[in-house]
Design a protein around this nucleic acid. Sequence first.
DNA 1: CTAATAAGTAAGCAATCATTTACTTCGACC
DNA 2: GGTCGAAGTAAATGATTGCTTACTTATTAG
Lengths: 196, 196
Amino acid sequence: MRGETTRRRDASHTRQLLLDTARHHFARYGFSTTTVRDIADGAGVNVALINRYFASKEGLFEACLSSAVTDLRRETDSAPANEIAAKMAQRIAGSADDPRHHETMLLLVRSSGDERTDAMRRALLTSISTRLASAVQSSPEPPGDAALLRAQLLIGALLGASLMRTSIAVPPLATANEAQISDALEVLVKALLPPG
Amino acid sequence: MRGETTRRRDASHTRQLLLDTARHHFARYGFSTTTVRDIADGAGVNVALINRYFASKEGLFEACLSSAVTDLRRETDSAPANEIAAKMAQRIAGSADDPRHHETMLLLVRSSGDERTDAMRRALLTSISTRLASAVQSSPEPPGDAALLRAQLLIGALLGASLMRTSIAVPPLATANEAQISDALEVLVKALLPPG
DNA sequence: CTAATAAGTAAGCAATCATTTACTTCGACC
DNA sequence: GGTCGAAGTAAATGATTGCTTACTTATTAG
């Protein structure tokens, strides 16, 4: 029935399965709305395994956010500063391809109420906005508050676009294709981060 | 001890008190995170009165959103179309004055999961974005999808700014004063809604 | 083949949730 | 001033929550 490459019991595999399902639920419905049974059932896995692998529901959420932070950091650290916004915009515009990219963005607006997890999210957003603000000026000095504020408004705009597109689901934004959204987002990026 | 103008028992007064406290909690922490006891205790009122006056927690949330919709509609319907965005931006920038304005915006990104309530929010956002999109064109025809999409991105940007400012609380956006934010938001509005 | 350990499961735990019920107290009206 | 309905309260309901425990099954090593 089953191939010889798939084991019936694989801890790291089910752990990853839980992580993927959890990110999907947390991103779409928020922390307290989703129950551990929702996640376990979605993954086709026993509820107790959540506590075994992640200690608690909170731990699972932190693991989700942590992997999201890692994803975004890898993408934004390797890219030249002036492309960061474009890469994030691409995550929102894309719909047909891997929904993981989209959920990663949505996860950033979800909170479990835990202070440590909130600090993690805040640190990521601060880091990215600082890099964004640095991109608009030629001098290597740290950006001023005015530039920082615009960069953070840009990130907020991208997160808000994510919400409007999937969570609130207002057409035509919810149903627009990738090219249409990219065009509109480009206008937004250029306005808040003028080159030079 | 107490003034003669305040009655000890006033149904409409406690109803309004519950409504105000509920909007504050729902807007800041979301629907499922806040408990009915949080709201009742915050209002200094017995828990059972929530079910008496609003039938259910869901009913109370719907009443909150409904009053938010009324507030926003009154403001946006009376204003000329090209000032709508500015008025909404003012709600976000303002911090020293009445926090109600800010919470009204935040409430639009909170969902109880109920389909009817979600539809109410979607209808409001569609209506406002249509008016916004109409403002950028001279012809009286209904706006095309491209203009509509930009207007919705603008609203999403404003909602995202709300989240970044209070919920996620990233400095300097969280601590910036009204004038600084207004300036930056104006850039954003003009970019997405070019006059003419 | 067989023991030992890792992986997974079923059942139930205490705590908390929204809601309902039976009851008490206030306030207005004749 | 007494009465009656409205306003408010305390306590308990059943359902759901996150999590633990005792157990079974699969996998691997000797």
